[in-house]
Structures are given as structure tokens and as C-alpha cells.
Amino acid sequence: MAKHAPPWPWAPAPPRRTPPWERSPSPCWANLRYSANDSHGALHLLDGAFADHRKISSPRMMAMLHARAARAHSKAGTPADACRQIAAAFAA
């Protein structure tokens, strides 16, 4: 019998574990994106993280997300949006 096979042929297979990168956009992936000159991809990931803001309870985490968004906007060449994110980071 295979190691991961169910004990009985009629038993359901165990649920597939979703990898972390499919569960929610992680801020560290955004960091990797804008470091590889893909600032728009980083902004897309950060927008997804901000969409789940109800799950983030720490003001420090929100400030970190705003700081990374500011860096991505800066790399994208939109300084006004970067300044807005910096102000939001200090307000968090």
C-alpha cells in the first residue's frame, strides 16, 4: 500500500493543503517583486493584502504594508502615491 493512500478504497482522499502563496498575497512576495523590477506586480500583491485588512490586527503590520507599498510606488515612478503611502504608514 502506498504511503499516502487512504486505508480503504472507498475512503475519501485527504484534503489538499493550499500553499501559502495561494492563500493570501504575502508582503514578502511583494518585496521580491519590486526588487526584480516588477513594481506593478508588487502593487497588485499589496492591493490584495490591503483587501484582507480586517484580518490584520497589528498596526505595525499595516505600517509595514504601507511602507512596502510606498517603495513599490517609488520604483514605479509615482512619487505622489508613494508620499500618500508614507503618510498612511505613519498614521497606522
Rank of each mutant, 00 (worst) to 15 (best):
M1G: 15
A2N: 12
A2E: 13
H4V: 07
H4K: 12
A5I: 05
P9E: 15
W10Y: 15
W10V: 14
A11F: 13
A11S: 10
A11M: 14
A13T: 12
P14H: 07
P15N: 08
R16Y: 08
R16S: 04
R17M: 13
T18C: 07
P19M: 06
P20R: 09
P20F: 03
E22A: 03
E22Q: 05
S24C: 11
P25D: 03
S26L: 11
S26V: 06
P27H: 03
W29I: 05
W29L: 06
W29S: 05
A30V: 01
N31F: 11
N31A: 13
Y34L: 02
S35V: 00
A36E: 02
A36I: 00
N37F: 00
D38P: 00
H40Y: 10
A42I: 00
A42Y: 07
L43V: 06
L43H: 06
L43R: 06
H44G: 01
L45P: 01
L46C: 03
D47S: 15
F50V: 14
F50H: 15
A51P: 03
A51R: 15
A51H: 14
A51C: 11
D52S: 15
H53D: 14
R54P: 00
K55I: 05
I56P: 05
I56N: 05
I56L: 09
S58Y: 01
P59N: 11
R60P: 00
M61F: 06
A63Y: 01
M64A: 13
H66S: 04
A67M: 10
A67Y: 08
A67R: 10
A70M: 02
A70K: 01
A70P: 02
S74V: 00
S74A: 11
G77H: 04
T78F: 13
T78P: 00
P79D: 10
D81Y: 11
D81G: 05
Q85I: 00
I86V: 15
A87G: 00
A88V: 00
A89D: 04
F90R: 11
